[in-house]
Design a protein around this nucleic acid. Structure first.
Lengths: 222, 222, 222, 222
DNA sequence: AATGAATGAGATTTCATTCAT
DNA sequence: GATGAATGAAATCTCATTCAT
């Protein structure tokens, strides 16, 4: 029943291809569809995280991406779909980042902290991606389909939680509660960091990771 | 140096007057200025939490509020100000709700759980307020002034955290980390609840409150 | 056939009553209709000469005049009528000013210069009136009736021209041509003065008056 | 030091290109950008001279020009810019018309009458242009830049005045006074003509031109 | 396949006018 | 008579989307 196995690690890391990131090395050689699509998505992320959905007209994206406005409609049915595609891709990137260098070794706590820190560090390195995800998470133009799909991608992480509970490393809490207890603080911390209310340091991240673990870790009483 | 004292409790509860809520019993009889302003704000909350800022034209608000479009501009300089006012008022409502029946008695844990549950129950009872706050928290049209002011309102809660740390009831974590550890999960849980991913029951809330306390409570090792 | 006679001078000067100007001495004693009407017209002139017709909402006039917006509609059917009334009144003031201290004595040139200078000095002393007249002269909301009526008021001046032609003091030019030759430069000079392109001094006015007279004065050749 | 020289005459006449007028023969065949811009400007002149700035909504211009309302904003940043562009172009047309067939030959009086009549005939042929210029000359939405620029275009005419004064053909009056004495009557005459108060005939124009010259021509006494 | 000019629906906001008090 | 809150028509301007080239 184990799904996360050492042998699959490389699979994880390569599973989530991101057109946006892969572009770099292909960029100059082939002037093709992928290139244009990628360029549009990168530009969209850039502009949306700064100006928001309605502050970013298609014409501006086209201009910054160096394509015609009409071209965008060859790759995306409309503005909403463009946003949705971007959303899905970033989700994939996040999960990929969480699983980077992840090994099924050591204690559950160590493994948890690895996953948790991977996520927070990824978003610290990619603030635009964070802003975008947070700003659009519950926007009315974000289709439910996208949220569903993003959930499926999360399944490897879910499995870790299920494992941990079974092994009495974690409290026997509903999966969703666990997610809330672990993901919620990440969002709050990153918002504070990006807003310059509290700059995240390695120490503070370590502290917070420990505290999060305290929230979910198995105790006699629980 | 104690700021939160028994004698001040009633002060807290009456400090945060909300025109929106107070109206119901205070102004039911008189058809006056406040009534129109209140009606506009209520309608705005209703529509915005569902359709978002740009999906809610002024004309729609006017129509649902039963006033002329121009009337809205008698009470608010523009659409942004309307949203900001609403934001500030809801913030006040939240803090007021948190402090409802709050007493400076019992253990710090008990007091924490009172505040924490008050908040989550308030938002469960007021899902539109929650949606609105979350959707507009970092929107570009939300003026900084508003965020500053909303921070000041939070100060009574902050004092509780400082007290708890001093009394070695809580870990000696930065204030902002504590907020992230306690508020972050609330947001996540409520989103799940509203999205019908996980319905919050009394038990689950109790569980989560316990877990949150575990995250911040003082331990020898910390 | 002489119409302008010494004995009529006082008549001229008192013929053109201006509610706007007469207000000063009545102002404090009687709080009555005339007062309100006057106050509205004065304020209108003030605001319109600065901001133009469409830059001056009725609400602003009401506020500056210290009356309710609805009150204005008790004295004037609508905004256009208010402007028209103001236009007519200023016209009357101008003619009255031209005839101030005017006597049927001396040469025709002297009499011309008296009238001509009276007009230019009046407008220099009343730049708002000038701006207003010029700005609204050909505005589409200026009813023709008003222009007709303003012409009738001008008749005493016309008579002077007719007299001068008959006496071979002026060229035998069409009346309208004479008006154009004498009034046209006044407008141009005042515009320059008000725009600070050329400040009018006594000398320059004297020069220009002489030149205007040269344009219309009788010569053997003409 | 002579600036106006025979050799430069043709230069004058070709200097002032007008997209609005040149279009007719240059762009009749090609349906392109300039055509739309020109069409918008022509329609604007048509409507504005009749209804004024605020009586001419963009939607009406669009409709009469046979373009979409949004299209106007592809060519002009806003309504004000559209008016300003139109103003500048007409100014150029006027100066161009004044210099048509103008030669540095004959007496100063002959040259003056040529320029003066050119102007009055141009405006008689283009009453809308006249109405427009007069209506918007001092409107608050007319940017200063435009007035400055229009002044520079006038410089060739200015040079003629300076020359005439030097040659003792004209009185030694300030330049601005000369302009007022010569341009003022043109405006007045045209207003009368357009208003059907006095129809301008060749004779009347000749009379008025003579009278204007009398106003500024050098005399022993002056 | 790519473009970007053109469109027009729709958003925000203003303001002359009305009318209940 | 006086008021000024309320109205809603109408103005300016934006921008997602289309389509001829």
């Amino acid at each position: 029943m184990k799904i996360i196995q050492p042998g699959l690690v490389f699979h994880y890391e390569t599973l989530f291809l991101s057109a946006r990131n892969e572009r770099s090395f292909r960029y100059k050689m082939i002037e093709n569809k992928l290139d244009k699509r990628t360029s549009i998505m990168n530009t969209t992320l850039e502009l949306l995280s700064e100006h928001g959905f309605h502050g970013t007209p298609i014409s501006l994206i086209a201009q910054h991406a160096g394509v015609g406005a009409g071209t965008i409609y060859r790759y995306f049915a409309n503005k909403e779909e463009l946003i949705n595609e971007l959303f899905k891709e970033i989700k994939r990137d996040v999960i990929k980042a969480m699983l980077t260098n992840y090994r099924e070794e050591g204690t559950y706590k160590e493994r948890f902290k690895h996953l948790w820190k991977n996520m927070i560090y990824f978003f610290m390195d990619h603030p635009k991606e964070f802003q975008f995800i947070e700003q659009h998470r519950y926007a009315p133009y974000m289709s439910n389909l996208t949220r569903e799909e993003s959930f499926m991608i999360l399944s490897p992480i879910m499995m870790f939680f299920i494992e941990s509970k079974r092994a009495r490393a974690m409290k026997d809490l509903p999966l969703y509660t666990i997610i809330a207890l672990l993901y919620g603080p990440i969002v709050s911390l990153l918002k504070q960091h990006i807003d310059h209310n509290q700059t995240l340091t390695e120490d503070r991240i370590e502290q917070a990771a420990e505290a999060c673990w305290d929230a979910v870790r198995y105790t006699e009483a629980s």
